[in-house]
Design a protein around this nucleic acid. Sequence first.
DNA 1: GTCGTGACGGTTGAC
DNA 2: TTGTCAACCGTCACG
Length: 318
Amino acid sequence: MSDGCVLNQLGGVFVNGRPLPNAIRLRIVELAQLGIRPCDISRQLRVSHGCVSKILARYNETGSILPGAIGGSKPRVTTPTVVKHIRTYKQRDPGIFAWEIRDRLLADGVCDKYNVPSVSSISRILRNKIGNLSQQSHYESYKQHQPPPQPALPYNHIYSYPSPIAAAGAKVPTPPGVPAIPSTMAMPRTWPSSHSVTDILGIRSITDQGEEGGPGAAAAARQGRSKCFSLSFQAPNGLPAVSSFVSAPAMPPYATPAQVSPYMTYSAAPSSYMASHGWQHAGGTPLSPHSCDIPASLAFKGMQTAREGSHSVTASAL
DNA sequence: GTCGTGACGGTTGAC
DNA sequence: TTGTCAACCGTCACG
């Protein structure tokens, strides 16, 4: 298939390198919650058991059915603020070692353990940017013509996992009876995902524009990605019934012909969940692919899983 | 038969 | 504008 669609051994259609549609991911979790074994889910949805395993494991671990952020780069840890602090330390104590600077950056709260520059990075900064302290006056002069420096926020403040939930949690009004979701608890990732901006913008667009959809929604749809599923909330008492859905009708995840994504081809998948007239819920409730219905409990179950977003989590993020 | 896991080839997006 | 890099993806095969 020229669009990257491939058949797996079970006859299911997938797009290599791209996440399964959220509808399938959701279905996997739903079936699992109904007590269906992963191997049966795998066969039923024609998704590899490895994938089912991954999605369920991720759901159990993070409470989210959403795929991780694809692409992008690690954030630079040597922000101007960090460099400024390093410079300060070096000026105060020219004999200071890089590892001492590193410790001080941590101690002073300039960085945290996740974004503190490596000793070699600090050495490089010292060598390349601060090595010639005679340039200091020039630097200061230069700075005076620059916009005010960014506040010395911990990097995680900026780059805490930019989950749609996080963005939405801060933006979306909390439904009655549903506790607000602290954005810092949204996802186990300290990382700036490549989605960070688009996620947030997409969500803002969605939420700002109510149920009318909009550029953000369309953009998300064009990207064929899962940002539209950010409109989810944790129920007060753990997992609500599977059938409780939060509808985000503004999102046309596989929508307009002009925005056909490879996932459109999933309509041909044996599960037929994306059949043109909607995905038939196991209980007979049609889940329109155009409505992006998603159980609140499944879109994001366990805020209790908030954790120090370590890289190991990301690495195991399945 | 079931499940967890690593390798693999692919896509994506920041730099 | 293009290339690189490092994330992520799902599948497959193995134990």
